[in-house]
Amino acid sequence: MLRLPPCSYLRPGSVDEAAELLAEHGETAMLVAGGTDLVPKMKRGQMEPELLIGLGHLAELRAVTETEEGGFEIGAGVTLAAVSGSPRLAAAYPAYTRAAALVSSPALRNVGTIGGNLCVDTRCNYYDMSFEWRQACGFCMKKDGDICRVAPASKRCRAIASSDTAPAAIALGASVVLAGPGGRRREVPVDDLYRDDGQYFLAMAADEIVQSLRLPPAGSWGSAYVKVRRRGTIDFPLAGVAVALRRSGLLVEDCRIVLTAVGSRPFDVSPAAGPLLGRELTAEVLAGADDLLAEVANEAAKVAKPLDNADLHYVWRKQMTRRAVEQAIVEAASCLPAPGGPA
């Protein structure tokens, strides 16, 4: 049986205390909430913390509250299942709850948290392997080695951003509250949480903790998340696209497009939606009649540079990114409030 290497586990009394422990122990410590990402990686020697700082028991991380301005604040320790099973969140933020519902499998979503999914480790066929396999391969720069196996000339790690919920959160204009030692708090857009580097993919400080996700009022946004993967469940995204759309009257006023699993960070490619602005999303446009969606999708997917370090052929993954952009626009349009309804 695969087992974890020995490590200690602390149960801090509060988020502040957790941040202080993190600051105190530095690189030897890691946070664990649901553990669904960390535990398998520890079993395979990809992560080797000596100390785990538990967050799962902290009630302050498990609250879902409506904010004064009419949005929602979701504690980082809320499970993916709780989010995807919430009718009021699903009504307001379909892209986000759909993304949460498409993470892994039901039993895992009962434990995996929304904070954990935002911070989920980047993935790579050369990295997500046992110690013995990586030893046979000669290791890579993300762990125990010094080169990138999929792109040996690359100066940085090319592991793939694999969070399903991050692109949805970014498209919806969400932010995260980060907690630091000494009661320090700061709020940053989710997009600012990431760096385009598979090894150092989180931009937050080493002693910071994602405390909550703040979603702005849903307003008249319609949104959708489309995930490309091999099977109907379990699998990580081979490409993922979140779209949020807003209309003024019948015309598109704003459209955000965010991609995941096509590089080392989620990519906000909203400028690609330019041709949609001021246009009416008629049934013909949504059916692809005048190539408008294709034009947007081609532009949006330009940033996608898949490599041979995930499932299926990388050319196909690029092609599917375009298709997923089109699908996500169509799906987001389908859940827009009726024109003339409440703004």
Partner: peptide
């Protein structure tokens, strides 16, 4: 390895005692 934890199916291979 699915077991029920407070009635919910969870994967016992991923759960630490403190959880």
């Amino acid at each position: 390895c699915t077991v029920l934890v407070d009635g919910l199916p969870q994967l016992s291979c991923l759960l630490l005692p403190a959880q």
